[in-house]
C-alpha cells in the first residue's frame, strides 16, 4: 500500500474507535433514562418468563421469532457452503499432530464437551446460552479434524449424524413454536410445564428446551461447514 492509503486507513480506524467510545458511553445505565420497555423488562421479566438472565429471556422468549430467523440464516449459509465446496478435490492433513497432543486432547475433550453442555443448560441462569455453547460443540469437531486427522472425525462423528442433528434441531424448534400455538395461543409461546422454583435448573418453561435445540443445531452446522472445507478426497499414500 502507498503512503497516502496508509494515512487514510489510520484516519478511518481512529474515527471508528472514537465513535465506538462515544456510543458505548451513551448506553443508558441502571439509573437514568428509564423508558417503558426497560422498566417493564427489569420489573416483570423474572416473573413472566422465569429466567434470571434477561438476555436469554429476550432472545428466546420475548423475541424468539428473531432467533428462529437467525438459525434459518445459519441453515442457509451451511447449505450454500456445502453446495459450493462439496465437489472440489482438496487435499487434507489427515495424519494429525504428534502423540503428546493426541493424548492430551484425549484427556481434555470430555471436559470441553462438559463445559459446552454446562453453558447450554445454564443459559437461563448465567451468561451464555444456546448459541455460545453450540459454537463450543462445533469446536470439538474442529479439534477432532485438526488433532486426529479428518478420517477420525469422519468415523466418530459422521456427516450423517451432523445432518441429522442440524435438520432435527431446526424441525424441533419449529415444533416448539407450533406447540406454543396449540397450548398457549401464540407462535413460540412459553410452555409452562417446567415450573419449579425460579433459579433452579429445570425452570423457565420452554427456554431450556429452545437453548438445547439451538445449541445442537448451531454446533452441527459449524461442524458441517468446517468438514466441507477439509473434505478428504485422496488416498493417504499420496501425501508422504
Amino acid at each position: 500500500m502507498s503512503k497516502a492509503k496508509h494515512i487514510f486507513v489510520v484516519i478511518v480506524l481512529s474515527l471508528l474507535g472514537i465513535t465506538m467510545v462515544i456510543n458505548l458511553n451513551k448506553i443508558p445505565g441502571n439509573t437514568d433514562q428509564i423508558n417503558f420497555i426497560y422498566s417493564h423488562i427489569t420489573n416483570n421479566a423474572v416473573l413472566e418468563t422465569g429466567s434470571l438472565n434477561f438476555v436469554t429471556a429476550i432472545l428466546y422468549d420475548y423475541r424468539a421469532y428473531d432467533s428462529l430467523g437467525e438459525s434459518t440464516i445459519i441453515f442457509g449459509a451451511v447449505s450454500g457452503i456445502v453446495l459450493l465446496l462439496s465437489r472440489k478435490t482438496l487435499p487434507v492433513s489427515s495424519h494429525g499432530l504428534s502423540f503428546i497432543v493426541k493424548r492430551t486432547f484425549g484427556m481434555l475433550t470430555p471436559f470441553i464437551f462438559l463445559f459446552s453442555l454446562y453453558i447450554i443448560s445454564h443459559g437461563h441462569l448465567s451468561p451464555g446460552g444456546g448459541f455460545q455453547g453450540g459454537v463450543i460443540l462445533g469446536a470439538i469437531s474442529i479439534i477432532f479434524s485438526i488433532v486426529y486427522g479428518s478420517e477420525f472425525d469422519f468415523k466418530r462423528y459422521s456427516p450423517t449424524t451432523k445432518t441429522l442433528l442440524e435438520t432435527g434441531g431446526a424441525l424441533l424448534f419449529i415444533g416448539l413454536g407450533l406447540a406454543g400455538i396449540i397450548f398457549g395461543g401464540y407462535f413460540l409461546e412459553n410452555l409452562r410445564f417446567l415450573n419449579t422454583e425460579i433459579g433452579s435448573l429445570l425452570s423457565a418453561g420452554s427456554i431450556p428446551l429452545i437453548n438445547t435445540v439451538i445449541g445442537f443445531k448451531i454446533g452441527a452446522g459449524l461442524a458441517i461447514i468446517f468438514y466441507s472445507m477439509i473434505q478428504k478426497t485422496f488416498k493417504e499414500e499420496d501425501k508422504l
Binding site: N53, V55, T56, P91, G128, G129, F131, Q132, V135, A139
Partner: peptide, 26 residues
C-alpha cells in the same frame, strides 16, 4: 455485557482463527 463477550471470545478468537487458517493452508 458478558453474553456478547462470551460469543465474541468463542467465535472471534477461536472459530474464525481455525477456519481462516484452514482455508489458507488449503
Amino acid at each position: 455485557a458478558p453474553d456478547v463477550a462470551l460469543a465474541e471470545a468463542v467465535i472471534g478468537a477461536g472459530l474464525n482463527t481455525a477456519i481462516f487458517m484452514t482455508v489458507i493452508s488449503q
